[in-house]
């Protein structure tokens, strides 16, 4: 299929075309790569803000508040909300919009819900493509909301300029915050639901974890408190998001971050391409034989992998 019409429509600001194209990309329909090439050339460099954290900490409410403030500043906003897909049925309930209903009829806002659909590398690729489509559509600011769990999260956040990790009181002791691996990805920590008991403790736990790192290379993530539903602390958070944006926008820093992201994406795409080549071109009879050899102990999985890989890069 040729989806270049959808891509061109997106560049002209056609929201329906953009919505359709996102589905095409999500479904990885034949020909989506060609369309994405057109989209890539039409991106305008929107700001990308990532919001992550465990379920129920208040991410969607925060996204809603941040989006409203962007709107007040006259900027158009794209929101990508990723919810988990069931690994058993492949289905998903995407409910982030419930917290953002006031924005659904706003012509300056485009909200898209996505299921995580299993794949790790693939997932992040699709998400970055969706960000690009919204960028090309003309969104000035894009907010990506994802459930923070495990390593995949780090992947997704590799696409954002600023990452806010949201937590709340009572989610475990300080060891949890090292375990989750969140220390490496946040530019800003937010302890939401600050009116609940223990908020100060959660904040000071986080701060003492951050103190263990010596070299922050110029930006030490602040730990902020807020209550998204009442609005307390939100101005401060927005101010820090703005400060981080200014910091990251300095040319050499910006280049470094974007280069790292581009490098990762290229690697991911190559991995995908190799997968595709093996799946479509490697003779299944031959693969069956190799599998049999491994099962019978004639061949080690390492040798088998080398054989298959050698075919792919030939």
């Amino acid at each position: 299929m040729n989806y270049s019409t959808l891509a061109k429509g997106t560049l002209k600001g056609d929201r329906k075309a953009a919505a359709r194209l996102i589905s095409v990309v999500e479904d990885e329909e034949e020909g989506y790569r060609e369309a994405m090439k057109i989209v890539f050339c039409g991106t305008r460099g929107a700001g990308v803000l990532g919001i992550t954290g465990a379920p129920g900490v208040g991410k969607s409410t925060l996204v809603f508040e941040i989006a409203k403030s962007f709107r007040k500043a006259g900027k158009s906003v794209g929101i990508v909300a990723v919810d988990p897909t069931s690994p058993l049925t492949g289905g998903a309930i995407l409910g982030d919009r419930i917290r953002m209903t006031d924005l659904s009829a706003d012509p300056g806002v485009f909200i898209r819900s996505m299921g995580s659909r299993g794949g790790t590398g693939g997932l992040s690729l699709q998400t970055s493509n969706v960000i690009r489509i919204l960028d090309a559509l003309g969104c000035d600011e894009i907010i990506v909301e994802t459930v923070g769990a495990g390593q995949t999260q780090v992947d997704i956040m590799g696409m954002a300029d600023t990452v806010v990790v949201v937590t709340m009181p009572g989610t475990g002791d300080e060891v949890q915050s090292i375990k989750a691996g969140l220390l490496e990805i946040a530019d800003l920590y937010l302890v939401n639901k600050m009116d609940l008991p223990g908020a100060m403790n959660t904040a000071s736990d986080l701060k003492s974890m951050l103190d263990l790192v010596d070299d922050w290379k110029g930006w030490k993530p602040p730990v902020l408190l807020a209550s998204a539903s009442t609005g307390r602390g939100l101005d401060q958070m927005l101010e820090f998001i703005g400060r981080h944006r200014a910091w990251i926008s300095q040319p050499e820093r910006f280049l470094e971050r974007r280069s790292r992201q581009a490098r990762k994406e290229i690697y991911d795409l190559v991995t995908m391409e190799v997968h595709r080549m093996i799946e479509s071109k490697f003779p299944s009879v031959k693969l069956d034989a190799i599998v049999r050899d491994v099962v019978q102990g004639k061949l080690s999985p390492y040798e088998a992998a080398e054989k298959v890989a050698a075919f792919a890069i030939r």
Binding site: K16, S86, G91, A92, I93, R112
Partner: peptide, 30 residues
């Protein structure tokens, strides 16, 4: 839930939607 269990992606709007909001949402979510 039933549609989700049948392998579909289900977007729920929440309560109190105007027809305009519903149609806008349907369009954005394709």
């Amino acid at each position: 839930r039933a549609l989700r269990d049948a392998g579909m992606e289900v977007i729920y709007t929440g309560l109190h939607q105007s027809p305009e909001m519903i149609v806008q949402t349907a369009m954005q979510e394709d």
